[in-house]
Amino acid sequence: MKYLWITLLIFVSTVSTAAPSLDVMVADKQGQLVSLSEFKGKVVYVDFWASWCGPCRKSFPWMEQMHNQYQAQGLAVVAINLDTEPRFAEQFLKDLPASFSILYNPDGDIARQFDLQGMPSSFIFNRTGELVYQHVGFFNKQQKQYEQQLIDLLKE
């Protein structure tokens, strides 16, 4: 049985040890670097998306609603686009206008550091900047639950 465990260990160790955190710099549309730590003190909903990703089209209207509804209570929605070329995102944003902040990470190094498991991926940080929730994909059925998580964090 010994051999089995050894092989399993080798297999697991290949997974990179990454830790999502707000201490990262991401470029905005004009290329200016924005540090996510400036959102500290707020509940931060970091979402990774791309123009070709189907479920992302469903998550945007929901994020827009969350932004409009809870921005005043200290919610910051940050959507990081991972298209290889930012111009692909233009048509997407025309179809689904977003008033929350959109940042761009074409070479995906931030996404690699967050070790995304699928698209879209969202990471929710509480007011002190700790990662509390992670979601992969976007499912209409879970919208209520996602919203409740934000409400609880906003109350803290």
Partner: peptide, 30 residues
């Protein structure tokens, strides 16, 4: 058997080196 099992796990492990990151799958969304 144990060795085969070990090898199998390695190949599956090997598989993990093939493939792309989730955000590099735009062609597969077509």
């Amino acid at each position: 058997l144990k060795i085969c099992l070990g090898l199998l796990m390695l190949t599956l492990g090997g598989c993990s080196s093939l493939g792309v990151e989730p955000w590099q799958k735009q062609h597969f969304a077509r």
